[in-house]
Simulated assay, not measured.
Amino acid sequence: MGSHGQSAGERLQFLHFIEQELKSKINETFQADPERQLFFGHSLGGLFGLYALFTKPEAFQSYMISSPSIWWNDQCILELEPEFIAGLKHADISIF
């Protein structure tokens, strides 16, 4: 399996941007409920959704992931799955 470091398209920085900048801008602009945030992603967006779910499940309260590109980068996303599954009993999220 591949590495989930720098070759993974800077996904850690993108998740940080979403949490630190984008969410606050959305909350300033719209009457959004920060306690009811849904992530939706398809294909490579779905792959990023799996990354967010596996590494920081509390980033969103619900995840809707459609046809994630698990094949990308030698299926390296699957390296993160066991730890996520082990901690799932403590998470308060919805996965669709």
Rank of each mutant, 00 (worst) to 15 (best):
Q20E: 14
D33G: 09
F54M: 11
D74A: 05
L50Q: 06
A59T: 04
S43I: 04
Y51W: 01
H90T: 06
A8N: 13
E79G: 12
E79A: 14
L53E: 00
N27P: 00
L15W: 05
D92H: 14
W71E: 08
M1W: 03
Q6T: 10
P34L: 08
D33Y: 08
M64I: 05
E83R: 12
F60I: 11
I70K: 08
T55D: 01
E21Q: 15
D74V: 00
S24W: 01
A59W: 00
L22S: 13
F14W: 03
F14M: 08
F54T: 10
Q20V: 05
L15N: 06
F60N: 08
P82I: 02
I65S: 09
A8I: 04
G46Y: 00
H42G: 14
Q20L: 06
D33K: 11
K89V: 07
D33S: 13
E19H: 07
Q61S: 06
A52T: 03
E81W: 06
S69C: 13
F60R: 07
D92A: 11
G9N: 04
G9M: 00
L38Y: 02
F40W: 07
E19P: 00
D92I: 03
W72N: 05
A32G: 15
L15A: 05
E10Q: 13
I65F: 02
I85C: 03
Q13V: 03
F84Q: 09
S3L: 10
L88R: 15
Q61E: 03
Q13T: 06
Q13K: 15
S7Q: 15
F40R: 03
K25P: 07
E21L: 05
S69T: 15
F17T: 14
Q75S: 15
A32N: 14
F17C: 11
E19I: 07
Q20Y: 05
Q75D: 12
P57Y: 01
A91T: 01
E21K: 15
L78G: 05
F96E: 12
F14K: 13
A32Y: 14
I85A: 01
E10M: 13
M64T: 02
F84D: 07
G87T: 07
L78W: 01
T29W: 13
A86K: 15
